[in-house]
């Protein structure tokens, strides 16, 4: 009886938790209003624009390393020529969104959780309520939408830079002809490869901002509380991205 009860209780707690997060996300997403567009723009700047350097660098080095790996691996069965196509497909479908998402998780989920958590522990969230303002609509809505809208753009930029990273290595040290490399990168790329990556980006954006907001809002008291919220937000965002990536990949490419 006891083990069943333990499992049952854990399952109940999990479902209740998922339900609470879903309701929170629904309230956040549903709070979008015309006069909130300014706040949305500010957040897009914070989440999207300021993440460009880190996402770009990540993509550049990943694309370059990928080209080296595929070249040396491909040589084993005389297929070194596939480098441009595989780098492009790998970046666009998988590495661009996943690594971009993870980098944004590190940068953005943490800062959202720290900012909102600090507002929670310094009673700024309570103050919003006493000023007839819904904290979810004021804080969560612009962050969720900004992340959902920014991440696909970041992923697109990362895809291009990643392919360029591969090209730099390919043309620079693997002996590829520069023009052929670029032509072969595009030649085998299909629309759905790119689109699926961008959709993944939007979902990862939601996961990142939602973790930051959720753990920030529930931050417990004191500096330690905010620190814990920040850590939880990054871990949840990263694990969430990897799990969602597996699920979405299964859905898109079965």
């Amino acid at each position: 009886m006891t083990p069943i009860r333990t499992v049952g209780r854990a399952a109940l707690r999990l479902t209740r938790g998922i339900g609470a997060v879903a309701i929170f996300a629904g309230r956040g997403l549903g709070g979008l209003r015309i006069h909130g567009l300014r706040a949305l723009a500010v957040q897009m700047l914070q989440i999207g624009w300021l993440s460009l350097p880190v996402v770009g660098l990540t993509a550049l080095f990943t694309g370059a390393a990928l080209a080296l790996q595929i070249h040396s691996g491909g040589e084993r069965f005389q297929a070194g020529d596939v480098v441009p196509a595989i780098v492009a497909i790998g970046m666009v479908r998988e590495l661009g969104p996943v690594l971009g998402g993870l980098m944004v998780a590190a940068r953005v989920a943490s800062s959202i959780a720290a900012e909102i958590g600090t507002m929670r522990v310094t009673e700024q969230i309570d103050a919003l309520v006493t000023l007839s303002t819904d904290p979810v609509r004021w804080l969560v809505t612009p962050r969720l939408w900004a992340a959902i809208l920014s991440l696909p753009v970041l992923v697109a930029v990362g895809d291009i830079i990643g392919i360029m990273g591969g090209w730099l290595v390919g043309a620079g040290s693997l002996g590829f002809n520069s023009a052929t490399y670029i032509a072969n990168s595009w030649a085998y790329l299909e629309f759905w490869d790119v689109a699926s990556g961008l959709i993944k980006g939007a979902v990862f954006g939601l996961i990142v901002a939602l973790s930051g907001c959720w753990f920030g809002m529930r931050s417990s008291r004191g500096a330690a509380g905010v620190g814990r919220a920040t850590t939880q937000a990054v871990v949840a965002a990263a694990v969430g991205i990897l799990a969602a990536n597996f699920a979405l990949t299964g859905l898109f490419f079965r």
Binding site: T118, M119, T122, E123, Q124, D126, A127, L128, V129, T130, L131, S132, T133
Partner: peptide
């Protein structure tokens, strides 16, 4: 709560000013 807050003001013990807004924007929030 909605009706009560509409005509309500509170000074928090720690002031609870919004960090992202300037002093006058805090005062003029409502």
């Amino acid at each position: 709560r909605a009706g009560f807050m509409a005509g309500f003001g509170m000074l928090f013990q720690g002031a609870a000013l919004f960090d992202s807004l300037s002093v006058w924007q805090n005062v003029a929030f409502r």
